[in-house]
Design a protein around this nucleic acid. Structure first.
Length: 587
RNA sequence: GUCCCCGUAGUUCAAUGGAUAGAACGAAAGCCUUCUAAGCUUUAGAUGUAGGUCCGAUUCCUACCGGGGGCACCA
């Protein structure tokens, strides 16, 4: 079972009208008296001129009936008894059947938005009494090492994944697993010793402190070969909990690193429910390895390995010849820990960069071998690189762009832009800049397919125009501005409309697609589907805005248009919320 | 060597096996006495190569060519 199938199991989304069409088609197919199963879909075509729904059933039947698809399509149209919500049914070359809905259908959906407001597009878990809990592990920065743009990407992606799954009706446990033990901590500690802490270090803010710490790590990496023995000694002392000057420093650096982490996470809007320090799973990792030598693991050249070659996996070292468990063993230990802490956990999703794909294939395989309870419960979801100028950056080379630098940079762009355009007071400017900058970065990261790399060009950054977060915010702001200016406007309870122009109808129809998009983005763990949708919604709203005056319209028109503006604002807000993007009222 | 991911307009990205492959940026031309021009309207421009499956392939399969990543003591 994959994660999509699992998520789908408890949360189902069926458009009732789509289902009616589907049932009627099944009945018509029965008339043809065919033995075999006919595979067909009823779907929303991307091109709206092809109808509100369309089916390829005639083409699927063509091969079986040995007739032309178009003829079959025409026959189906004849036999299809029109439901009250349908405006028209057409057979079109090469053999599609297109269904067009009455406008009234969409007006009803708009009414639903206005009534349900922030809960529009939210799904109920089918297990209502006791919604299943899903743990999402993401972020995973290291202490003693820079918080990179990769971690920023993981954090932003993770937050959105949590929101999307929560929207499906699951309970979500946001979890961070941070690397506070291992070679990098020893390197960094050694580096800090060599560089020496500046006297006024205590007065520095958390970002400046972290910069010093990250630089110390880079310095140690550069000098690793020369000083390997010293660094390994520190590493062992940390692992063995020996009290030395170095390990005391290690502890201090850990605290500073965690303060920095907390501040970055909060800035991104992330608050974890559960923290797992790597140092806490490490003891049990040792036990797991030792108890299974000769079973799942075996000794080899002084180390202990997992040989996954029979399963089509790699060979992985689970314990070094120095006797320390590797991150593989620690991830196994973490798996057990999670299910011990949350025995009724429905599923775990570990979100990391794609480079760890094979690693987690092995982790999951081993966990399932250990215990049946992990079967179909432990999942790895991965995302592509965040590239700078088309190139990967590494924290070892020291040439990386630090996560906080990227955030600061986008904030600066937003500040400049707003200073050019608007004359709000300082505090307001700063708040708008904060929201807009985050919208820019978050949207950039989430708007790509998870499997693909995201290109971030610091020189061109940040696009606040076109396909971007701020563009969507801008549409929201415009809608809100209209609503604010319309006197004594009250949300419409039961809108009734006869005529709609193309702009109004285009917007209205797109609004009605939101629940389906939110559902798909959730079960497929694909925030970019939502990004594409929200952008198109904003485009349609902006066209509507440019062509359909609201406040100066006739009473009847005004009512419809205000409802459209309110509906758009609501859906934009709900959708942005799932991406972890805040809104502003003015910008 | 082997396994995995990615190759779509000049650039950055979409496309649930389907209809005329959509956008955005950039380029060219218009639109502010009118609800915020971070906007709207118009024009030009693309599926790495070669096969295969299918009524139909950007999508699935095979080979090749490019780019990236994993694969024994870092995480």
């Amino acid at each position: 079972m994959n994660i999509t199938q699992l998520l789908q199991k408890n949360t189902d989304y069926v458009n009732p009208s789509q289902e009616i069409i589907r049932q009627k088609l099944f009945e018509i197919i029965k008339d043809y008296k065919i033995e075999e199963d006919v595979l067909f879909v009823v779907e929303q075509p991307l091109e709206e001129s092809h109808g509100d729904y369309a089916t390829n059933v005639a083409m699927a039947l063509a091969g079986i009936l040995k007739k032309s698809p178009l003829e079959i399509a025409q026959d189906i149209v004849k036999k299809f008894d029109k439901s009250d919500f349908l405006e028209s049914i057409n057979a079109v070359a090469p053999g599609f059947v297109n269904f067009k809905f009455k406008n009234d259908f969409f007006i009803k959906e708009l009414n639903k938005i206005l009534i349900k407001k922030e809960s529009y597009g939210k799904f109920d878990n089918l297990i209502l009494e006791h919604p299943e809990k899903i743990m999402v592990e993401f972020g995973q920065p290291n202490t003693h090492k820079a918080f990179t743009v990769g971690h920023i990407k993981g954090t932003i992606s993770g937050l959105s994944v949590c929101n999307l799954i929560e929207n499906l009706g699951y309970g979500v446990i946001k979890t961070n697993y941070y690397g506070d033990i291992g070679m990098h901590t020893a390197k960094c500690t050694w580096g800090v010793i060599k560089k020496g802490l500046p006297e006024n270090f205590g007065t520095w803010n958390e970002h400046k402190k972290m910069e010093f710490i990250a630089d110390a790590y880079v310095y140690a990496s550069e000098n690793f070969e020369k000083s390997e023995d010293e660094i390994r000694k520190i590493n062992l002392d940390i692992y063995n909990n020996n009290k030395t000057e170095a390990t005391e420093l290690y502890e201090k650096i850990k605290i500073w690193s965690l303060e920095h982490q907390k501040s970055v996470f909060e800035n991104l809007g992330v608050f974890f429910d559960k923290q797992y320090p790597e140092s806490q799973v490490f003891e049990n990792a040792k036990k797991i390895v030792n108890q299974n030598v000769g079973k799942i693991f075996k000794e080899s050249q002084g180390a202990i390995i997992y040989d996954g070659e029979k399963e089509g996996l790699n060979i992985w070292v689970v314990q070094t010849s120095e006797g320390n468990p590797t991150y593989m063993a620690k991830d196994l230990s973490l798996g057990f820990q999670k299910f011990q802490d949350y025995p009724d956990l429905y599923s775990n999703i570990t979100l990391t960069a794609i480079e760890q794909k094979d690693h987690f294939k092995a982790v999951i395989k081993i966990l399932e071998t250990f215990d049946e309870k992990f079967k179909d419960k432990y999942f790895h979801v991965h995302f592509g690189w965040l590239l700078m100028d088309g190139k990967k950056t590494s924290s070892r080379s020291g040439k990386n762009i630090k996560g906080t630098d990227m955030l600061e940079e986008s904030l600066e762009v937003a500040r400049t832009k707003i200073a050019e355009l608007k004359d709000y007071d300082k505090e307001k400017k700063e708040e708008i800049a904060r929201v807009v900058a985050l919208a820019g970065i978050k949207f950039l990261i989430l708007s790509h397919d998870f499997n693909k790399d995201v290109n971030y060009d610091p020189k061109k950054f940040i696009d606040f125009e076109g396909y971007s977060g701020p563009y969507i915010l801008y549409a929201y702001v415009r809608a809100q501005s209209i609503l604010r200016k319309s006197e004594k406007y009250e949300s419409i309870k039961d809108l009734k409309v006869d005529n709609l122009n193309d702009y109004e109808l285009g917007l209205l129809k797109w609004l009605a697609r939101y629940p389906h998009v939110a559902y798909r983005a959730g079960i497929e763990i694909a925030p970019h589907l939502l990004c594409v949708y929200l952008f198109e919604l904003s485009q349609r709203f902006n066209s509507f805005y440019a062509n359909c005056p609201v406040l100066d319209a006739s009473e009847k028109e005004k009512e419809t248009r205000l409802a459209l503006a309110e509906g758009t604002a609501q859906v934009l807000k709900n959708g942005l919320g799932l991406l972890g993007i805040e809104t502003v009222e003015e910008m």
